[in-house]
Amino acid sequence: MSRRGRFARMVIGLGVALAAGAALLFGSPAQSGEPQPLPLAATWPNAARGSVPSKLPDGSEYSPALFLDAKTSIGTAQSADSTTLRLVVRDGDGKLLELRKVPAEHHAPFAALTSSGDTLFWVESVSGKQQLWSADRRDPKTARMLTADVGAMQFYDSEHDLLVADGRVRWVSSGTGDETEFRSVALTGGAVTVTKQKGTWGLAAWPWAADGQHSARGATTLLNLQTNATVRTPSADRTVTACSAVWCQIVSINQDGYSRIDLAHPDGSARRKVIEGNVATAITDVAVLDRFEVIAKTTTQSDLTGNQQLLVHDLSNRHLVLVSPDAGNISYRAGVLWWSTGDQSSFVRNSLDLRTIP
């Protein structure tokens, strides 16, 4: 986890702890004017949804890493004999297609999955060495390594850790000292191009990158990698800022000790409060699809279950929607939000394709 992520969770955790103590002593303070969440089914009745059992038919655990739609996912699973780890495509009917497999001794060998059309891209780590791979999602025979010249790749649990733009696959690696390498390779492989920038940067929607990946205050600048233009982002003491190319998320603690989440454009305009209370940002990415802010809210049951309310704030109309009252393991990639319900011994992963919301 990056320093920014640890600090954000520390700030949010402090707010939750203070609020919990106040509630025990005085009862929960009234937060007048806070929006009441709307039910998912009534608010977005036509949104595509799905569910994925946590186990494959052979009994092995399945962990989705990317959804192509609400019912089709790509993820990892052990083989039935536990000797290999597999990268598989699981369609809406439960059919499986194995794309790759590596010996099970390698921990978390598949990372940063992304797609462009029917082509999948991922990072494969074997024996401590990282490689960039691709395959047609319908044909395992097309799986091949694009390059091993990836540098010291940096992942921030973002959908932009590995992205496809302008005919190239792009990522960041740490350089020498306080330096970031922006690397890319053609979709067919070949020579890797490298440009360097002082600071710790992560990719946002192309062609933008955000700095402050290891900073307690988060992002202070957006950089256009095509023009070298920069935008100073909203940043202040006792806040943590994270930015996409269109929106910046500013997390702070209010005077009652609760977390407050604001959104503003990178130039500081159109700033508005999204929510405050026992809340936290549920995913790394900010205002996904330039429209939806994904939020987790701690409830009285959270200490018992370890789960939280999963909420989505719709910037188009400022509606707050309750997606799940008891969600765990919240993830997002490429327009699809997914989470688990149940307990560790028996759970289901549920999905919501935000791209299908009108």
Rank of each mutant, 00 (worst) to 15 (best):
P53F: 02
V312Q: 00
L203H: 01
S73L: 15
R137N: 05
E179H: 13
D136T: 06
D314C: 01
V89Y: 09
I330R: 00
S346C: 11
W201G: 00
S116V: 05
N224H: 11
T119R: 03
R355Y: 02
D326E: 02
T72R: 02
R217Y: 03
S244L: 09
W122H: 08
W171T: 13
W339E: 05
I253Q: 04
S125W: 12
F292W: 04
A8V: 15
R183C: 04
E124N: 10
S184L: 09
E105L: 10
A236W: 05
A165Y: 04
L146F: 02
T114I: 10
T299I: 06
A216D: 07
R355E: 00
A236M: 07
Q344I: 11
Q197L: 10
D303H: 09
A112L: 12
W247V: 09
P207L: 12
K141A: 06
A65K: 13
S51C: 13
G15P: 05
A216L: 09
P37S: 02
Q309D: 11
A77K: 03
W206P: 12
V348S: 03
I74A: 12
K273H: 15
Q213V: 06
L14F: 14
I253T: 14
A65E: 15
S184R: 08
A209T: 10
S302M: 04
S28N: 14
N317S: 01
D58P: 13
H106K: 08
I275S: 04
T76S: 11
D149C: 03
T83C: 13
C248V: 04
L337P: 08
V194Y: 03
R232T: 14
R232I: 15
C248W: 00
V288E: 07
L203R: 01
V123A: 13
G128V: 10
S32E: 15
V172H: 00
T43N: 11
V88T: 03
T233W: 08
T220R: 13
S351H: 05
V348A: 04
T76K: 06
Q154V: 07
W171I: 13
T83Y: 09
